[in-house]
Structure formats: structure tokens, C-alpha cells
Amino acid sequence: MPVYERGYTHWESTGGRTYPPWWVIARRGITEPLRSRWFLLLLVLAWIPAVVKGTIIYVKARTGNLLDLLGGGWASLSGDGVLAFIEGQRFFVFLLMAIVGARLIAMDRRDNGLALYFSRPLGMFDYIAGKTLIVLFYYLCVTLFPVYALCVFGYLVSAGTTGVNTLVVIPLQTTLFCLFAGVGMSLVLLAFSSVGKRTIFITVWWTILFMGSEAISALFAAGGFNWLEFLNFAGQYHNAGSLLLGTEPRLDIPPVVSMFLTLLYAVLALLILRRFVRPVEVVS
């Protein structure tokens, strides 16, 4: 029996809810890595620092200020403590973003997926926004969400004595910072992903940018060339974050300069994405 005799019926909509394409792309991209046990394990590991910090907060709340030395600023729920916690998470940020983000556009380019996406009623904004949300979500998973949890936990264990600062101000400031840094880093990673078709090379470049730039900048700083700290990619975000969280600068360069640099990264990333995210590849 020819296959077509199995029948074909035209589609009649049930009138259900439809979602914008960027949301469909983001939802699928966010749920896909969660099928891997290793990835879930990594997420659990990424929350261990938050659990440790929560434990310290709990013990401090029970024993007064006796344990202030334990954990220092890192263990507090001040702006400084939150930024220190997020800085401490940068290894997990690097790893999760590399695992999730490096392949996002590269695989689509390799499989001619861009033409497939753009044969649907969606535009470049939908595509890039959807992909950015995927990376951003996992960035927030190991930075913002633990801070939220710690703020609520800290408020509860202090029986409300920390007031609105822990429950409102710090979460708001952290949200602002994490969205700023998360979107910026996500765009840069996606720009990397869009220029190549092999995930391994993109991961290598991301490693050089994220970890290598920090190492190089630390070497220069050790040699007295502190002004070369502008080479530190991730450090720029944290330094700029000191403006948003009202803390001391993280680097020896003004936070405003870091803010400008991070915005420049984002603009460059968008220009690269605009160049490479196309349904039709132009080859000379």
C-alpha cells in the first residue's frame, strides 16, 4: 500500500494558546540540557556554594556575631557579599554557559537549521532573543536564583530583623546586575557560536576569553601593570556590577570604564550575530 493512502487531513485549529517564537525557542533550549544526568549533577554542584553560604548565615543567626569571621564578606547578604558570591560562581558560570551556549547557533549553522528556522514566521530578533534566553537562564540558575533563595532564607532565619534590605533591595540590585551581566555574556558567547560550526573551537575560544583573559590580566597585575586589567573579560562585568550593587570596585580601573567596555562587547556581539545569523549564507 502506498504510504499516502494512510491519509492526510488538513489542520483545524483548536484555538489553543500560541506562543511567540522566541519563547518556543527558549523553552526548548532550556529543557533540552536537563535530560542529561551529568548536566543536572553540574547544576546541583553549582548550588553547593549557596548551601554553604546558607549554612553560615543560619549559624551566624543562631550564634550572633561570634562567627562573623567565618566566611567574611562572602557569607553576608550585603551588596558586597552578594557580588563576592557571584564572583565565586564564575567557574560554574563559565562551564554551564560553555556547555549550553557554544553549540546553540553553531549546530544550527552546521545542520542548515537557520534556513529551517527562518522558513517559519519568525525574525532575527525572535531567534537571537530565544537563544539568548537559554544561556541567560542557566547563568541566572547559578547566580541570581541562589541569591534569591539566600535572601529569603536569611530573612526567615533572622526572624525578619534584616528588614526590606535583604528581602527587596538586595534582590532588586542583584536582579539588575545579573540581567546586565547575563545578557552581555550570553550575547558574546552566542556571537562566538555564530562564527563557527564546530562546538569544540567555540568552547576553546570561550575558555580563552573567560578564563584565559583573567589569568593574563592577573599576571600583568602581579607585574604591576594594573591598568591592563581591562583585559579581564569576566572581571569587567563584576567591576561594573560594583556600581549597580554599591560596593567597592573589583579592579583597578573605574567601574564606569568597565560598564562601557561591557556595553561595547554587547554591541560588537550583536553586530557579529547580525552578520552571521542569516537564512542564506553568502559565499564569494
Binding site: W11, S13, T14, G15, G16, R17, T18, Y19, P21, V24, I25, R28, L116, Y117, R120, P121, L122
Partner: peptide, 12 residues
Amino acid sequence: YMGELAGMPTRD
């Protein structure tokens, strides 16, 4: 996935 990207409700 392609159906949803074309604007179909998820269940459809």
C-alpha cells in the same frame, strides 16, 4: 517544534 514555531498551539 517546527509546528509551534509556525504559530500552532502546543497541543495542536
